[in-house]
Design a protein around this nucleic acid. Structure first.
Lengths: 288, 288
DNA sequence: TTTAATTTGTCAAATATTTTTCAATCTTGA
DNA sequence: TCAAGATTGAAAAATATTTGACAAATTAAA
């Protein structure tokens, strides 16, 4: 079992600052762990002892031992046949389309290793246990992902609201925000000031923040309860939102898995209403 | 110039014990250089100061600096696309989260083989050459994908409109629809009557229809100029929209690739406006 | 609200690493 | 052989890193 797997699948209960370290380790794996413990601590904005406590929690006797293990992993990778091939040139995948698709696939896979499983669990819990509202919002592109997530969440619990556009009046909602509310924010590279501002203010009102962001971390991460992190690197001037969607949907799947009957019942009720009004077609029908 | 190259091509005159160190560095590159200087010295059977003298001869101010450089090299290698591949398969994908993610990956790959490359080309052409408007719409979930696509298209050409919600008044737009317009429709399983109806009417007005749908094909396929088809099978009561996003983005990438400068210029203009109004942050900044 | 428990950082002690100094050793050429 | 210069390691000084003890701060619970 590699250290990465320990960090992702970790069934350890980690404290917030420990999670910060884990996040850093994962997003720059394994190099961020190969310097000194102090440097790691500084970069994760925690104190040296916190790093020491984390490695001991992970089952290592000392930071040195942890690092030795990490180094052994690097050794193994560097000598793997795959790595040997790296010197050879990769045959150019022909055409924009397969290339882009392949890069999305890479981004998706990368995303899986950037977010510890516990993050989904925590997020699911926060959403389903929120006594107040669940507010969902995002940036220029990601707000569409936010919209989709709110569509899903609406099926599973009441009081879910999506903020489609951060106009001045949207900020009014902050007045009623309290510790009972959960704010789900999507903020990816080209982090938007209005989104950041909204999140910060919501946090100041003690609302719980769930953040979806990319590997470079939106500043909102500082105030977020949970961060779900994705890799975005693709062959285009735009970043791909596919990992974001996948992660949002994964959260939905997780919620369904942990919360049993209740959301399913609500969904069935909503579905029967839809059928009554013949909004959906169950089977494709041919026209004429 | 990498450290390895420096060590190999070395135009430095090295003493015998320095050569021993170099040899060790090369034979276990780069890991042997990632521990402490003392350990390296011990392994090369030289004294600590000898190592210090070598790194200074190589032009580094200190061993720490030398190691930082080495670490940067590792970072670069580890982030190469080929290496990413290695990260891929988690053998024991237990639990909802990895399972869902894996199924999204499968759906994505499946989607790549369901749509001929020519479809993207045709779609790109239709969109960029449309003399009239480009209208983008979708169903309950897919309308969010539609929203995102319209966001992208807006960057690249004028007269792009997203129909967020198919209310009665949205149907009014059909009155002005003509053969000069292009309608991009997203319609996935649980095909929606209102969406189908809109698309059929637009087709009747001779608008060109580009359809995004799933492998079971929306009835709109019958009237569409181009169909971009995805596989949706996932481990959840809901279907995943990730392939839809990926395909929409791929289309955007294709458009950028085929239409050269023009959309890029428009994008840059829009971007500079955004910066003027400080809507986006280019770098994450820390608060406090 | 207050209290208890947890988390986290500060400080300091212990440890380790790096680097400097310097003397011993080796090499080379007369 | 000897001496000058280069090379090297031992020891100690300087520096840095890690870790333990404790108290402040935060969070959760009553």
């Amino acid at each position: 079992m590699t250290i990465r797997e320990m960090l992702i699948g970790g069934d350890l209960s980690l404290t917030p600052s420990e999670q910060r370290i884990v996040q850093l380790l994962l997003s720059e794996y394994p190099t961020s762990g190969l310097g000194t413990a102090s440097r790691l601590a500084k970069r994760a904005a925690v104190s040296d002892p916190t790093v020491a406590r984390l490695v001991s929690k992970l089952g290592f006797a000392s930071f040195a031992e942890f690092q030795a293990e990490l180094l052994a992993e690097v050794e193994k990778r560097v000598h793997s046949p795959l790595h040997m091939m790296e010197t050879k040139r990769q045959p150019e995948a022909s055409g924009v389309v397969p290339e882009y698709m392949a890069s999305v696939e890479t981004a998706l896979r990368q995303s899986q290793s950037l977010t510890p499983l516990a993050a989904y669990e925590k997020a699911a819990q926060l959403i389903m246990e929120a006594k107040g509202s669940v507010i969902v919002l995002g940036g220029r592109f990601s707000r569409h992902v936010a919209g989709m997530l709110s569509e899903y969440l609406n099926q599973m619990r009441p009081n879910v609201r999506a903020i489609a556009d951060l106009s001045a009046s949207s900020f009014d909602t902050l007045a009623d925000t309290s510790r009972k509310d959960v704010v789900v924010v999507f903020d990816y590279r080209r982090y938007q000031n209005d989104v950041i501002s909204y999140a910060r203010q919501a946090a100041a009102h003690d609302a719980k923040i769930i953040l979806f962001t990319d590997q470079w971390l939106s500043p909102i991460a500082e105030v977020a309860e949970v961060s779900i992190v994705s890799g975005l690197d693709v062959a285009s001037p735009f970043d791909t939102m596919a990992p974001a969607i996948a992660q949002a949907e994964t959260l939905v799947a997780k919620i369904l898995a942990v919360s049993g009957e209740k959301p399913l019942l609500r969904m069935q009720r909503l579905e029967s209403v839809r059928k009554e009004n013949s909004i959906t077609l169950d089977e494709p029908v041919s026209s004429q």
